[in-house]
């Protein structure tokens, strides 16, 4: 059996085609042309503005879109498999709100608000939120049941969100600075963020592929897993840590990009199949391509760059989701 069912191989090509179409007809077109002329002429003279726009603005943005898409897609996939809930997404564990609170705390603190500092603050905020969710559920229930984590995570996220709103209402200028971030956007990406992002995301994705086997065993039931020598709690904590790393690193750069973690795993299952490592690999690739395409599409729609890519994601994702539900429903 080949990796890809031939009838479903068109999916990534469709996304790539959309990206190419949006980019070649979009506001980047004159810059692409100028860059091409510059490279063709030898590229040794001082770079013209158009070439800089391409290498300093679009290229980092595309790289970040690929990394964040892969991170959010696979985080969603891991979480959906771990919770056996096809509607779970990383936002449910209070991570997004925790990251937002970290950023807002940095803004009102006396420390300078630099891109690197903001990234660290958001990662720390998300990590603290997730540790609190796990710690409180453990203390309150004596165990770490998946349902308890999801429910309390959603609840705790609401509380953190309220705190963020409170600070933003008191400090007007903080809202101006993180407005883009709160909506989830790649417009504010800075090249210096790519390094740390890649350093976290790429090794974590590799580890995630390696631990897909114990997680698959755990899916057959806690007792079966235990009898096969897989510690259910260790797998739960390990996978949760992977989800945290992937989501926090991504959210810290772009803000919460909704819908990517939810819809990508379903597309990946359709594309590569149900086995966890296949779905995970598919989620990485499709997540990367989907966010890249979504970002190119919103730039095509509004060259002022004011829209969040979540808009294009949901425009593409909602019909897909409806079609998927209908197919499943009719099949039953």
């Amino acid at each position: 059996m080949s990796l890809i069912d031939r009838r479903r191989a068109w999916l990534p090509w469709l996304l790539l085609g959309l990206f190419a179409l949006a980019t070649l007809t979009g506001p980047q077109r004159p810059e692409l042309a100028a860059w091409w002329r510059w490279v063709w002429a030898g590229g040794d003279a001082r770079a013209p503005l158009e070439a800089l726009v391409l290498t300093e603005l679009y290229l980092p943005r595309w790289q970040v879109a690929l990394l964040i898409g892969a991170a959010l897609g696979s985080a969603g996939c891991l979480l959906q498999r771990l919770t056996a809930n096809p509607l779970a997404s990383p936002g449910l564990l209070g991570l997004n709100q925790g990251a937002a609170l970290g950023l807002v705390c940095l803004l009102v603190s006396p420390w300078p608000f630099t891109p690197m500092g903001a990234w660290l603050a958001a990662v720390v905020g998300a990590a603290v939120a997730m540790l609190l969710v796990f710690g409180i559920v453990r203390l309150a229930t004596g165990g770490l049941a998946i349902d308890g984590l999801l429910l309390f995570g959603a609840l705790f996220g609401t509380l953190l969100g309220a705190l963020v709103t409170l600070v933003l209402l008191i400090d007007q200028h903080a809202l101006d600075v993180i407005r883009f971030w709160l909506a989830g956007s790649l417009a504010q990406v800075v090249p210096s963020q790519i390094g740390p992002l890649a350093l976290v995301v790429i090794p974590t994705l590799a580890v995630a592929l390696l631990v897909s086997r114990p997680l698959e065993i755990l899916e057959t039931g806690r007792d079966t897993a235990a009898s096969l020598g897989v510690d259910p709690r260790l797998v739960l904590l390990g996978v949760a840590a992977l989800v945290l790393l992937l989501t926090a690193a991504a959210v810290a750069v772009s803000g919460p990009i909704l819908f990517a973690g939810l819809v990508v795993p379903h597309m990946a299952r359709f594309w590569l199949g149900d086995r966890l490592w296949r779905q995970l690999l598919g989620s990485m690739l499709l997540g990367a391509l989907l966010l890249l395409t979504a970002d190119a599409l919103i730039l095509r729609l509004d060259d002022q760059d004011r829209l969040p890519p979540s808009l294009a994601l949901s425009l593409m994702g909602v019909p897909w989701f409806l079609w998927l539900v209908r197919r499943r429903y009719l099949a039953c």
Partner: peptide, 10 residues
Amino acid sequence: RWQDTPFWSL
């Protein structure tokens, strides 16, 4: 932030 980018050389 702009001063840290090559755009500033323009």
